[in-house]
Design a protein around this nucleic acid. Sequence first.
DNA 1: TCCTTTACATACAATGTGTCCGTATATCCA
DNA 2: TGGATATACGGACACATTGTATGTAAAGGA
Lengths: 193, 193
Amino acid sequence: MPRATAAVAAETARRVLEVARDRFAADGFAAASVDDIARRAGVTRGAVYHHYDGKLGLFVAVAERLQAEIAARVVAEAEKETDAAAQLRAGSHAFLDAITDDRAARILLVDAPAALGWSRWRELDAAASGRELREAVEALETVPEDLVDALAQQLSGAMNEAALWLADRPGDARAREAAHSALDLLLVALTPS
Amino acid sequence: MPRATAAVAAETARRVLEVARDRFAADGFAAASVDDIARRAGVTRGAVYHHYDGKLGLFVAVAERLQAEIAARVVAEAEKETDAAAQLRAGSHAFLDAITDDRAARILLVDAPAALGWSRWRELDAAASGRELREAVEALETVPEDLVDALAQQLSGAMNEAALWLADRPGDARAREAAHSALDLLLVALTPS
DNA sequence: TCCTTTACATACAATGTGTCCGTATATCCA
DNA sequence: TGGATATACGGACACATTGTATGTAAAGGA
């Protein structure tokens, strides 16, 4: 088998990543097999292990990609607002919509904590949208300084659970509306009227 | 090997369950091995497969046991209060304390959703404390009927995340206090003054 | 007392992961 | 420009783990 040029190699890595994203979303981390991913990408497991650090490394690459995509959308929406409270609300709603697209919820919210361990998952999340959330909560006048971390964490949990709840009800517009409204109910309590 | 009497057999099943609980908590579902659990329980894998429906069945048994224990504590605390709002708050705080004891958080909140799938995990949770939470939210006058499900879900997510956050900071009394206070911040918004 | 069922132990087959090794060919460098 | 070297894989192997099938000895009922 001839060796591929650098551009072709990058294309191989990209295709593997794409297939992996699809398989992890469809089958979950545990049930997805590296061999299946490789075959669907048109390569052997050797290629996958060359480009990525094992099954977990491949999964991490997929997760980081998804996190980045979602964080970008969240930040973009939040930045449209000016004051802290509005930014928090806009970002939260954007997060809910973003993570329920592209079947990212299962990968990021169900499999990632188990596969990476909760603390590593937290670090990954903090590097993406988690940090923004914490800062948004911190900017609120109504929240005491020593509760910022705990509250941001719990809001994150509420949104994540809402996302999974929605992911379990695809196409249910009423549920989506209810999730957003309920989230607002929690957020308005924290935002100064 | 002689066959055991019925009482001895029940004791075997109980010992296996206990060891499994310990191993799942320490190693996680994926990394724990049936052989290791069996050996630590003083039996072979054959005994485990006789008493439980495979690794997943054993895990489900452990999870159900933990759920029941926690639900009992939550209900006991909630029943000390009379009005709906106070019951919700008492139950929520009791849940936070209960699930962070005995290293149940990892099993129930991290591994269970991944191993069982999110929807099966939800059913398991609903059968235990989830249903109580929904009813408590429903009893609040301040929450519109069509938001009850979504809100209960999100509150559950907030509490679960708080539990994991605390489980990651064992013995940190300040964090525990902050988690409870932050949870109160969310709950007071929903409870009529 | 015999016979069925229970409670395991043991052996076996299947699947999946990670690693090692081979190799052809870009790419770098003298 | 022609070799040396590193890269991008493919293929084979070893290992771990799960589930199943089978054997078996004793308990408990008829």
